[in-house]
Simulated scan of single mutants.
Amino acid sequence: MPRTSRVIAASLTAIALACGPTIAAATGELNLYSSRHYDTDERLYSDFTEATGITINRIEGNADELIARMEAEGVNSPADVLLTVDTSRLERAKNAGVLQQIDSAVLETRVPANLQDEDNQWFGFSQRARIIFYDKADVAEPPMSYVDLADPKYAGQVCHRSSTNVYSQTLLAAVIENFGVEAAKSWAQGVVDNFARTPQGGDTDQLRGLVSGECDISISNTYYFARALRKDVSDLSSDIDKIGWVFPAQNAEGAHVNLSGGGVAKHAPNRDNAILFMEYLTSDQAQQYFSAGNDEYPAVPGVAISASVAKLGLFKADTADLSKVAKNVPEAQKIFIDVGWD
């Protein structure tokens, strides 16, 4: 069925699905391949099993390794669902041919169109806005957009992750989608010129750089900061009041978001259970737990957020189709090489 027709058909069920799917009892098992490494996800799995009677068998690992494993297993793969983080990895799984198209009125209605694959092979379940953080003592006028990060007045102040990181790649891919290749290359060069240090570390390290004084401006996904608000994170939480934040481009394209999402495996032996599990992840209960358990923003609009996430606030998100953004990653990688972004 054409995508437009499927969306129209799905909209007819919107009222019935407004509060999320009703998860009925079922039988059997579900084989889950997941690169989500959060202990808090245990609650998601146990609640699903309690509601349905379906046993979840898990294999956890690096996303690329899991995708390669599914490729190698081929038609004999036991995988039913792949869960992973970042749009680029979801697209990578699609391109590797390890996912399948599914028709689900629940998923198409609950998940905004720009947070799902154009061929319905993957869907986003939670969001992490990639935003600007800064040292409130040293930065009187913080950058208000991603474009501003390349302003020469911030020379020697910006910390960022390396170009090999998927978050870096997807952000630049979004800049390409919104402004074009040449503008994106100019922007990337400007950010490199403003680096306070060679790109290194994870998102938490970018925030710690603000506390230590190594940099004045950094980029991080929101859930790393919200986590440090909720519980003690070494070398960060005790001085977190020093850090301010900006949701970028609120008067323009909006803040870029990374997704955690998943898809049904190409050769899923328990396909019906796999779709049921995917639909369950869009329920209000599961969506609220993504926020309460791991400080993420729900993908489904209107779902309540946790106290720690609420401290960051609501924001206007970039509505660029993330399926299209993911296709720009190879071009983003070329730009990184061209501008010398390590």
Rank of each mutant, 00 (worst) to 15 (best):
V81D: 03
G28P: 04
A129D: 07
A255R: 01
A105D: 06
R3I: 12
I15T: 10
V300E: 09
G53V: 14
D117V: 14
S88T: 11
F336G: 02
T204L: 10
L83S: 00
W187L: 00
I305Y: 05
A255I: 03
D80I: 13
L83M: 05
V147I: 09
K153C: 07
E141K: 10
N31H: 10
I335G: 10
V211C: 05
R230G: 02
D203Q: 05
T204H: 04
T49M: 11
G261P: 11
A265G: 12
R208P: 00
I176L: 14
L107R: 11
L276P: 07
K324T: 06
S77Y: 13
V181I: 11
E214F: 09
H37I: 09
Y146T: 00
A105R: 14
D235Y: 13
K94L: 06
A68P: 02
C19P: 06
D342C: 06
S238N: 11
P330K: 00
A24T: 14
S283W: 13
T4W: 14
L115I: 11
D86A: 07
S323Q: 04
C215N: 05
G156L: 10
L44G: 01
A137Q: 08
D203R: 03
R110L: 13
G340F: 13
S283P: 01
G262S: 05
A173M: 04
V192W: 07
A14L: 09
W245L: 01
G156K: 07
S126Q: 13
P142S: 01
G209A: 06
Y134I: 01
A265Q: 12
S145R: 01
F123T: 06
D135S: 09
A113P: 02
A196K: 02
